[in-house]
């Protein structure tokens, strides 16, 4: 019946925040050096995903949490991607992709 309450050390939390600050700086920095299309989008989203995963894992403690809560989070992302992916099947492949009226 034991539940493990994970307690992070203050040092660890500061470390997590510092890594997030650094990533924020990097993502702004790469817009200055103008990476060509489409890699600029990939890099921007990639950094955002890394930042989000750091927050989820170490601020929201999902790293130490029950598997079902992890599953819930994964499921929400999966269904979000489903919503986008299937809708793009339509909007990207319309005969006239620009609404003409």
């Amino acid at each position: 019946m034991s539940v493990h309450h994970h307690i992070s050390s203050a040092k660890f939390l500061w470390g997590v925040a510092t890594s997030l600050f650094i990533l924020t700086f990097i993502t702004v920095f790469v817009t200055w050096i103008h990476i060509p299309e489409p890699w600029n989008v990939v890099v921007a989203i990639g950094i955002a995903v890394i930042k989000a995963l750091i927050v989820v894992a170490f601020f929201m403690n999902l790293w130490w949490d029950s598997k079902f809560n992890v599953l819930l989070f994964v499921m929400s992302i999966a269904f979000f991607l489903l919503l986008i992916g299937i809708t793009l099947l339509d909007t990207l492949y319309r005969v006239d992709p620009v609404p003409s009226f």
Binding site: I86, L89, D90, T91, L92, Y93, R94
Partner: peptide
């Protein structure tokens, strides 16, 4: 409704 034929098939 005018969605793409690819989406229709899928």
């Amino acid at each position: 409704a005018g969605q793409s034929s690819l989406a229709n098939m899928v």
